[in-house]
Design a protein around this nucleic acid. Sequence first.
DNA 1: GCATTTGTTGTAGATATATTACAATTAATG
DNA 2: CATTAATTGTAATATATCTACAACAAATGC
Lengths: 112, 112
Amino acid sequence: MGSANKPIKPKKMYDVDDDYAILSKLIVGIGEVAEMTGIPQRQLRYWQDKGIIKTFSEHDKAITRRFNYAEIKKIILIKELIDEGFTLDAAAKKVEKRIAIIQETFRKLIKQ
Amino acid sequence: MGSANKPIKPKKMYDVDDDYAILSKLIVGIGEVAEMTGIPQRQLRYWQDKGIIKTFSEHDKAITRRFNYAEIKKIILIKELIDEGFTLDAAAKKVEKRIAIIQETFRKLIKQ
DNA sequence: GCATTTGTTGTAGATATATTACAATTAATG
DNA sequence: CATTAATTGTAATATATCTACAACAAATGC
């Protein structure tokens, strides 16, 4: 019972699964996202107020904004498109579409 | 001159390089690291005071602690070893050795 | 042109989070 | 049993973030 049937995973020197485990738990505050991306905090708050990006709230009502890995990627992609000349809304929609296509592709791959 | 000789990188639907770029810029505060890893902030500060883990300081003297991806991985590995029964110092040394071996392996690979 | 929308930025006052510098506590070690 | 290792607690202070206002420039519609 319990974990008796769990497949044994021998510990390798370097395990890519570790990286995925970390990324899936990643939590970053707005100040750090601003530092990483170069986008001012004020702008990130505006994007969030407009619903373009979403904050991650694990425990009931988090008072400070937390972003996960997927959202950080989205933020960077949106910024790239804005720099290319897109409007904020257009950039956001383009990124959403891109993400949807990727997810659909993976879904098909898994089914095979 | 300039960027004239840069290799052209066609934009793919999903680019793993993007992930590496994000990870290399990753900055996380102590509160988020505590949330991600389950290790209390107080304990992380103690480890840092002892020199076991290091804070990343981009701009001269950062007053609040910032951790990069490598340090987060180190923290997680140390915790795992402590849970297995190692002392803090022993765990830290073991992790350092492991990281050194990985780096050495990559160095050899690149030379080939 | 001019009103309107879009997108960004500024700021004050309040709230939340992190800091240091003390110290208590509990195991493990010699 | 004294000593060291490791963790945890806390008060006072510093830093970061929040909201809710509003100003402003650039693009858009009429």
